[in-house]
Design a protein around this nucleic acid. Sequence first.
DNA 1: CTAGGGTTAG
Length: 810
Amino acid sequence: MLPFMVGAILKRGDELNFCCSCLSGEALALSFIFIASRSHSLCPCSLVLPSVSSMASFPLAAVTATLKLHPQFPKCPPTSYPPAKGQSISLQKSHRFTHLDLDFREPLLLSKEGTEEVEQSFYVPLLQQCLEKCCYSDTQVVHGHVVKTGTHEDVFVMSFLVNIYAKCGNMDDAKRAFDNMPRKNVVAWTTLMVGYVQNSQPKYAIHVFQEMLHSGSYPSVYSLAIALNACTYLQCLKLGDQFHAYIIKYNVDFDTSVGNALCSLYSKCGRLELALRAFRRIKEKNVISWTSAISACGDNAGAVKGLGLFVEMVSEDTKPNEFTLTSVLSQCCEIVSLDFGTQVHVMCIKFGYKSNLRVRNSLLYLYLKCGCVGEAQMLFDGMDDASLVTWNAMIAGHAQMMELTKDNLSACHSGSEALNLFSMLSRSGMKPDLFTFSSVLSVCSRMVALEQGEQVHAQTIKTGFFSDVVVGTSLINMYNKCGSTERASKAFLEMSTRTMILWTSMITGFALHGMSQQALHLFEDMRLAGVRPNQITFVGVLAACSHAGMVNEALNYFEIMQKKYKIKPVMDHYSCMVDMYVRLGQLEEAFNFIKKMNLEPSEFIWSNLIAGCIIHGYLELGCNAAEKLLSLEPKDTETYALLLNIYLSAGRLEDVSRVREMMKEEKVGKLKDWSWISIKDKVYSFETNDKAYPQNSLVCESLEDLLAKAEKLGYRMVESMEISDEEEEEKTPSPIIYHSEKLAITFGLENLPCSSPIRVVKSTLMCRDCHDFIKYVSTLTGREIIVKDSKRLHKFVEGQCSCGDFGSFL
DNA sequence: CTAGGGTTAG
């Protein structure tokens, strides 16, 4: 029994207070929706209820609830039988549903002589509420009522119910409701199809389509569009083509919804050309058509084309919506076009999307990606409705900035900023999700911040995101980049699904540490598992071969890649090959290989070659390479350092001064040599010759002690190049013993537990002397020492370095 | 029918 009282007819803005003692909140709410819908034309209303839990703990206590009719709510379309104004409602008949464990007092008698339309319109507002709130139990109540009053004969009401059940995720009930319909029209069939597509059962949607044809119903353009959606979901181009044929046969490919669906089908299947062709055939293109076509470009690496379409769209006076704008902004990100991006920003304002959350999230990310931290920060600070996506965009944006900045120094700033944001996010009470975790882990890996990474690892386990394959991939990558292949491979084995990227990440991890055999074995396992490698996988494979000097294998894989997998070699593949010849001291072969490349060799390749020439004494070849490198007009200090080095080694002093001149013109500054080590959650930084760090004297003492011991084992200090941007007068060479990485490592030795590896990140290349010295230190202390310099990761264990001593050095 | 934020590269 529902002991409520209803006194007067409610008006907009009115509040009704009542008590109840025995009913669930939903039943109560529903009853009031009934009352509201009948008492007035103000059907949409909100019911403020005490929380379910408080009701559960006091089941017998009287609970007060407030029914509020929303003052601004527009009038509903007139229904056929609202009570006349001023007429009060009395509740007369009680009825107990047999299949619902619920007392239900039937609202005012349904008019017996009422026609079907009358009853239909009675249910519509209720159904709308159910749909909006997605409330399964309410829907069941209404459904029961519908059956009881015989309205289940009504196709429209029943389709509505199918729709609601589908939205609640209950396709069994949706199907049952559908099956119980005595008559079915195309809308009913289509509704069921939509349900299956939305509940990730696209195959059933196709079945329903076929049944519909068998039953003699003709599909509408909309049902064809849904069928195409199902194909899109299945990524089944074959099936999609069949539908396309059907569509052409009935000459409906110019229809807007069909064309839109075709466009997204082809886009999701990676066929940009076909997608755009479908788009062009649409007679009346709406915003969605344009947006579909534009995002098709975005999804298929056609950002420039997408932006072109956007310009075309705007010039045809079609107003973009938030979907268009977000897609366009993300394409600006893709090509890192701040220019275009700012223009789109202006348009966002013009079209009234200035305060749209999604649009602002995209803008924020764009600004970060283009390096405009200030703009992004301003947008971020001005948002009082920042969502988790906003935070994620900020964190991911800083992670992106790390990627794009050339030097480790500014990368570290972005990285710390990202980690900072992450802890702020946690403090704000929002729960990080898989997007957050994968970004943060990638930041940890770039910072070689194992301790932070481990903490995040723990959090991913606690929150259950560990099992997400992308998070898992980031985690494995983090362990690899922090020097722990053991833990990476352990996590790799624990992953239940292994995607191509996951395999690639682990292969690359092994290659990174010079574990070539393991890398190649894993690659074979991957192929046996039937996972198709991509371009990047082969970068890892070739890197592994290069590391171990396996020329034949490398050439073999290089060919397999092109012949069997139809992957065109890119710069990174060539770099690996050149690196291999350089490591083996086969400089002539390296040079020949470069000549045969069908790409213009990059700065990286020439630098690598020159470094090899210096090591192996191919000075003439090195000078030739130097000319090529100079013609690429390098901008960074390290490249110039290398050039000076080769010319000095070759004794070509006139070239040395020429390079120095160029450095002056290009305003290439002195190398900012800088190392950092993170201990617990603090980052300590060291400059060469630094005196202003904690424990200065202790570190100096310890360092000198190490030096003396190393010399006993045979270490000899080697002076390396000093790069100075000024005249010779300023040349006061800093003692090589106080190079920043030596300081950072010694500091780590003093402050980390004995068993803990030392992890240091450096802003420039290491010099050869430091590399040598650290090898001795790893023997002397029995520690694992990992140094990430501006080009490579070096892992020193017992006097050996994972780079095989063939890196580039200053 | 469209959808903002995530993982692998020498």
